[in-house]
Design a protein around this nucleic acid. Structure first.
Length: 996
DNA sequence: GTTGGTACCTA
DNA sequence: GTAGGTACCAACG
């Protein structure tokens, strides 16, 4: 790297990087005289100069390979996630420190002294994925093409190179930034050395180590020695973890002292310490990062090549091959330093400046050049502001009122909207720019808290802007913000006109399976960076504080980032949606309106009869106690009836009941399917016990606990961007799995009631998924059955068995029902046989017969499977694309699973589309004063309705639901000619059981 | 205190 | 055989 004149870039692609000779793995480092970086005297270090940057390249390539989506690839199929991630990390650290000296260090494949020392060393690590291995040469080339020195020394690890260089740099008066996220590196931290992870953004200094571990960096090696690290072959002392190790180190300072005082240490751990004392010297050597490698060194080798023109062709080539479009475009930009520098040479010559002056001008430009390449290629300075005075607030208000659109985010005291109080608001009007208005921070000793603007005044002025549909708002999971702000008198009114985008819903509509849709996930997946986490600013576990107890300046960064990221995500999704009318419609016409409806339903809640639930609880409790007694009598001993493990042992080992099957984890299987076949009183008791304790713990007790103390209403939360098929899910509590099948279970439903003067109304789509099957398959027999209004399972039985519908017996109907459901689930003969308790052959005959009568269904299933294989996705009735990533998986089990899911997805997903349409259709016509929508249970909507209006409202709802495709969907731009009628059944009652 | 396994509730 | 959520135990740190 010393040859700065070479414009020929050929050498960049070679694998030899350095002039350093390889190290012999059989020669041990000189541990005896190894300098300890953590305890160095650093008084001579000049902190005014830029730091030396030592990058642990191997860390970034592994970390980013595993953290970023593997779907990131160029059109040639080359995975690029680690290349991109490592590149971003390098650029980030360079932007931050503007260094003159830097090295990116990598491990090599050659063995090192550690392999010689320990057979286990890294033996536990699986072979590197080929998708990662193929990226490594590109990363090396990229580093060199950016003019950054790259170090790989055979026989040495990146850690040890960094350790050695860190020691030498500090000795010579430079401070050092080690760019890595590996905790082993903490042993190198001192007053002049910090550790910075450019991927996670975490920075650790001397104080940071103490805060995290409660020990000094000088004690890190000893900590690792005691704790052990399986992946590094360090055995450590068994049963000693971080807690114990830190305790000992605080008491005795170091490992030698701990060993000297081992006899004082009591208990099992003390014995282990003595037992394993002999291993400790070796473990300590393994844990030590070498700081005195025998490598030559010339700081000039680590000087960043600041000539921007040097490798521009190589960079251009690389970016082209990798298809890094933004980076490539930046190279062509007239402001690019490479182009500017070239111009400057020409200009200077024209003006016949002296050679010295030319050189100086060039040098000055070179100084900034490499940094500018980076800034131009991606980076932007963040402009984040905290609003703490009236003029700043007024200026922000001006900008917001004049904007066509902006991103907004609320910071609160809780992730649960029901108890969230507002702490502050953040806004972003363009990428990389954001504003935070702190309102209710209350951390003591934070002088900024006293400067916060008045909440009521701020909200009063923001209200007209937030409610103004002329200004498009952008948010991430708007429903949450809407819940919070409605308590402060602001109606966010989630409509397509007031909201330009919900980034969570946009991501979900575009690809429900690509990632989860929380802000952190979206940032990683779509922006390829990492956000400050809530844990970073508020701590974690028991020590976590609410957001109002976070210092204003720290909170401001977090909040500004949220708004900024939301805006950036908006730009990404806007681009993706630009020419995608279907997904635009799904987002704006379907999901966004549904979001508002869900917000209202959640806020309304459903009334429960508390006293009745308490009564049930008590009753169940008594019966459970009785069952326990009987069980102990049967078993001849007391045991925990709720433990499947103990029950299995008592039943099969102690009592010698036959028919015990083991699960894969080696314990007896005691599931319902097993117990119900066992003719022993204990099995029966256990089943009854389980049923009752499930009802009590999951329903009677839980519902009572979550109901609002004042109103007796239960408010669930619907997740709109979670399932792989487009369904909703419900939590805290889950109101989509309230019992219905058994008589006792239905008692729980009776606790859901309507207030005085109202009744509950349930409206559900009849056989919606089978109707969708009829529609999609176009099968003549299936369509005919629905068009004639037949009972579908009886019709199936009649068809398959070749008899008339009237002659179908209940068993025959039951079997037909099983096959109908099996079809929806992509069943196999094996699965059906198990369900119907027949042989596999019989099941196969039944299936064959079915397909003979319903050939359209067979074709549909075949076509769906091949669509999934060809396109990588299937589509629902409204054109929602549901991706099937595992459809070509190499593992047959996984692949078959993906095939079944692919067959089910269009049916389940289309049913989900339809009920969402139905919610919108019903919401439009429902008279708000007389009725409220309360719950959605996949194919059912539950309402409370004024008792004296129930007949007309019931008709209204039924019509709206049955006509969603011909009316509502059509108005929105969907043309669907549905092959069979949509039938809705309604029921009314004083409670949910009666209404169903 | 967190995590995996088992069991069981729904459409 | 599809899609979810919750509770409990037992083991682990």
């Amino acid at each position: 790297m010393t040859d700065k004149t070479a414009k020929d870039t050929a050498h960049l692609t070679e694998s030899a990087d350095t002039s350093h000779a390889a190290l012999d793995p059989n020669v041990m480092p000189d541990f005896e005289h190894m300098p300890n970086v953590a305890s160095m005297d650093t008084s001579h270090v000049d902190k005014e100069k830029p730091p030396f940057i030592l990058v642990d390249g191997s860390y970034y390539l592994f970390r980013t390979y595993h953290a970023l989506p593997k779907t990131m690839m160029n059109t040639q199929g080359l995975t690029t996630n680690a290349i991109r991630g490592t590149l971003n990390a390098l650029l980030k650290v360079m932007r931050r420190y503007n260094p003159t000296h830097m090295a990116v260090c990598f491990d090599t494949k050659s063995p090192t002294f550690r392999h010689t020392m320990s057979e286990e060393y890294k033996a536990n690590r699986p072979k590197m994925d080929p998708e990662l291995a193929e990226q490594i040469p590109y990363i090396h080339r990229l580093v060199r093409a950016l003019g950054i020195p790259l170090l790989r020394i055979e026989g040495a690890e990146a850690d040890d190179i960094i350790g050695t260089l860190t020691y030498r740099a500090v000795e010579e008066g430079h401070h050092v930034v080690i760019s890595s996220g590996d905790k082993d590196m903490m042993q190198l931290i001192n007053d002049s050395v910090i550790l910075e992870d450019s991927f996670s953004g975490k920075v650790v200094d001397e104080q940071g180590v103490e805060e995290k571990y409660g020990i000094k960096p000088t004690q890190m090696i000893d900590l690792l020695t005691l704790m052990g690290d399986a992946s590094d072959g360090i055995k450590g002392v068994p049963s000693v973890g971080q807690k114990t190790a830190v305790k000992w180190l605080n008491q005795y300072d170091n490992v030698d002292n701990i060993l000297a005082n081992a006899s004082e240490i009591k208990g099992k751990v003390g014995e282990k310490l003595i037992e394993y004392a002999d291993n400790i010297p070796r473990d300590k050597q393994l844990a030590t990062i070498v700081t005195n490698l025998e490598i030559g060194q010339d700081w000039d080798d680590l000087r960043i090549d600041t000539d921007p023109t040097a490798y521009i062709e190589e960079l251009r080539e690389l970016y082209t091959e990798l298809e890094f479009k933004n980076e490539l475009a930046s190279l062509a930009h007239p402001n690019h330093p490479a182009n500017m520098a070239a111009n400057s040479v020409a200009d200077s010559k024209a003006e016949t400046e002296s050679q010295a002056q030319v050189a100086k001008t060039l040098q000055n430009q070179k100084q900034a050049a490499i940094i500018d390449i980076i800034k131009d290629s991606k980076a932007h300075d963040q402009a984040w502001h905290t609003i703490l005075d009236e003029p700043a607030f007024d200026s922000l208000l001006q900008k917001l009122s004049a904007a066509s659109h902006f991103a907004v985010d609320t910071e609160t005291t809780s992730i649960d909207w029901r108890e969230a109080n507002i702490v502050g608001l953040s806004f972003s009007l363009q990428a990389h720019e954001a504003y935070y208005i702190p309102l209710n921070h209350s951390l003591e000793d934070d002088e900024l808290t006293s400067k916060q603007l008045d909440q009521d005044k701020v909200l009063a002025k923001l209200k007209p802007i937030l409610e103004n549909p002329e200004i498009g708002k952008i948010g991430q999971n708007i429903k949450y913000d809407a819940h919070v702000l409605r308590r402060y008198g602001i109606d966010l009114n989630i409509t397509p006109s007031n909201w330009k985008m919900d980034t969570m819903l946009a991501s979900y509509v575009l690809n429900a399976a690509a990632t989860r849709h929380g802000m952190d996930d979206l940032t990683r997946h779509y922006l390829h960076t990492q956000t400050i986490t809530y844990e970073d600013v508020a701590g974690k576990g028991a020590k976590q504080v609410t957001f109002d107890k976070v210092a204003v300046d720290i909170a401001s960064d977090y909040a500004c980032e949220d708004a900024d990221i939301t805006y950036q995500l908006f730009e990404v999704f806007q681009e993706k949606l630009k020419d995608d009318a279907v997904n635009q419609r799904l987002l704006h016409e379907l999901e966004i309106p549904v979001s508002q409806i869900l917000c209202d339903m959640e806020a309304t809640g459903i009334l429960i009869k508390r006293a009745f639930l308490n009564e049930l609880s008590k009753r169940f409790d008594e019966e459970i106690g009785e069952l326990e007694k009987q069980a102990y009598y049967e078993a001849g001993e007391e045991f925990n009836l709720g433990s499947p493990k103990q029950l299995g042992e008592v039943l099969f080992d102690k009592l010698g009941v036959v028919g015990g099957k083991k699960t894969k984890s080696g314990q007896y299987s005691t599931g319902e399917a097993v117990l119900s076949k066992i003719a022993h009183p204990l099995a029966e008791i256990a089943l009854e016990y389980r049923g009752l304790s499930k009802l009590k713990s999951t329903y009677t007790d839980a519902l009572d606990a979550v109901a609002d103390k004042d109103t007796d209403r239960v408010h669930t939360s619907y997740h709109q961007a979670l399932t792989s098929t487009g369904r909703l899910s419900s939590t805290d509590p889950n109101l989509q799995n309230i019992p219905i099948r058994t008589k006792t279970g239905r008692l729980i439903r009776q606790a859901f009631i309507a207030p005085e003067g109202r009744v509950l109304l349930a409206a559900d789509y009849s056989q919606i998924e089978l109707r969708l099957m009829a529609h999609f398959s176009g099968d003549a027999n299936l369509t005919k059955a629905f068009n004639e209004g037949l009972d579908i399972h009886s019709a199936t039985a009649a068809e398959v068995l070749g008899k008339s519908v009237e002659d179908v017996t209940p068993t025959e109907r039951r079997n037909a029902k099983a096959i109908n459901f099996g079809l929806l689930y992509g069943m196999s003969a094996f699965g059906l046989a198990k369900q119907l308790e027949m042989t596999r052959g019989e099941a196969q005959d039944y299936i064959d017969q079915y397909f003979k009568r319903y050939p359209g269904v067979r074709k549909y299933m075949h076509d769906t499977r091949s669509n999934a294989v060809d396109n990588g996705y299937i589509e629902t009735i409204l054109g929602r694309k549901l991706y099937t990533p595992d459809i070509n998986h190499s593992n047959q089990m996984v692949r078959r699973g993906a095939e079944r899911a692919a067959i089910n997805a269009p049916l389940q997903g289309s049913a989900a589309d339809l009920i969402k349409l139905a919610m919108i259709a019903v919401d439009k016509v429902l008279p708000a004063d007389n009725a409220k929508m309360l719950l959605q249970v996949h194919d059912e909507l539950v309402f409370e309705v004024d008792a004296d209006k129930v007949d007309e409202i019931s008709e209204l709802i039924k019509n709206a639901m049955q006509n969603v495709l011909s009316d509502t969907a059509k108005e929105m731009g969907w043309e669907v000619d549905f092959a069979v009628p949509l039938l809705v059944e309604t029921g009314v009652g004083d409670n949910w059981d009666e209404a169903h």
